[in-house]
Design a protein around this nucleic acid. Structure first.
Length: 460
RNA sequence: GGCGCGGUGGCAGAGUGGUUAUGCAGCGGACUGCAACUCCGUGUACGCCGGUUCGAUUCCGACCCGCGCCUCCA
């Protein structure tokens, strides 16, 4: 039995998909006007692990993650760059796909783009107007009438009165109530636009997700996820739009990832304290970044820091060390480790607990190795790789991990040659020379490991 | 001000009404030419104050502190 924390009920609930064996999940994706940062990576990796685990448990997961490719910020940035908005978004989408691939994030089942769903968006707006939940204003905008929807605030636990009282929302006179939000925005001069019954314009952000999710997954689906800062107003508005339009429950389970912090502050675009994924990947191997993310629970806040990434690197190195030189066995039956792993993951995807099981398996491999039981070591290695896969870890060969080119001055061949030279010196008991070579390599970031079978190396 | 989340050993980070998280770092030992890796052993813990209980880090209440959302943001 899988239990998932549902933001709606604020508690863990037993997960029962609408259709047995099948999971329909929608996650709010990126607005593609800039490179993805670590916060995006958190959401990407969190829902990637969730998808992998649900599939591991036998569910057929239909995972939809949208791309917002039309919005104010995109238009502004394209304007600054002096390029078409579509050129900007095409570049950023490609960059996003590259970042994802490096982080071993699997592609979602579907990746709908807002600009390809304008008709669906218009249809939903028409429905909302006809049902009295939305109105076209004099300025060409269309707004959702928040007070027409009873459940407004049920996700973020906000009361409409409180929202109105503290209203810092823009005071567009066109709105009937300050809390109303735009479904359709009239085009300003020269802006890209689509025709509509209310004049040329473009969709508001919230309606895109309502239209795309409903379109791909149906009126009601199992899981809706996203970043922590989307809960209000974005997700609240999605619920209002979708449930008002269809008259049916929207998403059953709402999942929100925790924020990434830098120096005790949330990493965000508005604070300007963000690190892009590609910046970080210049300093740390992608799998180390992924390990860092996976080693704490998806709902907790995590601090991005040099020390934490370095530690993640050391720890991952240890896991790969256990696998080094072993060919995992085929067809190894489930073990007690598989059971413990599943127990942790069943509990709201407790990846931290699951990672602890990985370490237990690694310790067992090392023990078998010490005992000289190669078969048992290979069997355990198979378990480690199998469980690692569910977390998107340990899927490259240990040598590939250890030898990954991080831009050092030495090539693999150079290093091998030096190892040979050192081996010769050691054979002659010229330890001064042997140590000189080892120290020299260490200075260049290469660590040597002398095993019984010979010397191996890795990049520090 | 409203709503929500959290305070665990040097650090990171799970979890539990009474029994080892795990990792990094440290210490002692084995292995090693010396190291590294690995193995064995080892220390330090649950913000504060009350309450419930035979017993609370774990449940309840107050308090202190930190964080998030309330405006575009993953």
């Amino acid at each position: 039995m899988i239990r998932i924390y549902n933001t709606l009920s604020q508690q863990k609930e037993e997960f029962q998909p609408i259709e047995p064996g099948k999971v329909r999940m929608y996650v709010c994706g990126m607005t593609v006007y800039d490179y993805c940062h670590l916060g995006h990576a958190r959401v990407l990796v969190a829902f990637d692990v969730i998808t992998r685990y649900l599939r591991h448990r036998g569910f057929d997961v239909h995972y939809v993650r949208n791309i917002t490719d039309i919005d104010d910020k995109i238009l502004r940035r394209a304007d600054e760059n002096g390029e078409l908005f579509s050129e900007l978004t095409a570049r950023m989408i490609q960059a996003m796909h590259e970042d994802e691939a490096r982080l071993a994030v699997l592609s979602p089942t579907e990746e709908p783009r807002a600009t390809a769903h304008i008709d669906d968006i218009l249809a939903m707006i028409r429905t909302l107007i006809s049902k009295g939940h939305a109105y076209a204003a004099d300025n060409g905008d269309v707004y959702f009438a928040v007070d027409s929807f009873d459940g407004y605030g049920k996700l973020s636990k906000k009361k409409l009165d409180d929202l109105l009282a503290g209203a810092r929302v823009d005071v567009a006179e066109a709105k009937r109530s300050p809390a109303d939000f735009a479904l359709w925005k009239a085009a300003k001069d020269g802006e890209v636009s689509w025709p509509s019954p209310w004049g040329d314009g473009r969709p508001g952000w919230h309606i895109e997700c309502s239209a795309m999710s409903t379109c791909c997954l149906g009126n009601t689906f199992d899981i809706h996820g996203g970043g922590p800062d989307l809960m209000f107003p974005h997700h609240e508005n999605e619920i209002a739009q979708s449930e008002a339009a269809t008259g049916q429950e929207f998403a059953r389970t709402w999942m929100h990832a925790g924020a990434i912090r830098v120096n005790k502050e949330k990493m965000s675009k508005s604070l300007g304290n963000f690190f892009t994924i590609r910046e970080i990947l210049e300093k740390y191997p992608a799998e180390v970044v992924r390990y860092f993310l996976v080693s704490s629970h998806y709902r907790s806040q995590v601090d991005y820091s040099e020390a934490n990434l370095v530690e993640a690197g050391r720890t991952l190195t240890k896991l790969y060390h256990a696998l080094r030189g072993l060919v995992p066995s085929k067809g190894v039956a489930d073990t007690d480790y598989d059971r413990r792993f599943a127990e942790a993951m069943d509990d709201d995807f407790n990846t931290a607990g699951a990672v602890a099981v990985l370490h237990a398996v690694a310790a067992e491999i090392n023990q078998h190795r010490r005992d000289g039981d190669d078969q048992a070591a290979r069997d355990s290695a198979a378990v480690l790789v199998r469980l690692g896969k569910v977390l998107g870890l340990l899927q490259q060969g240990p040598e590939a991990f250890f030898h990954a080119d991080t831009g050092g001055e030495l090539t693999a061949d150079d290093i091998e040659a030096l190892i040979q030279a050192r081996a010769a010196a050691r054979k002659n008991r010229d330890f001064a020379e042997a140590d000189r070579i080892r120290d020299d390599l260490l200075e260049k970031g290469i660590v040597l490991d002398d095993a019984r079978e010979g010397t191996t190396w890795r990049r520090a």
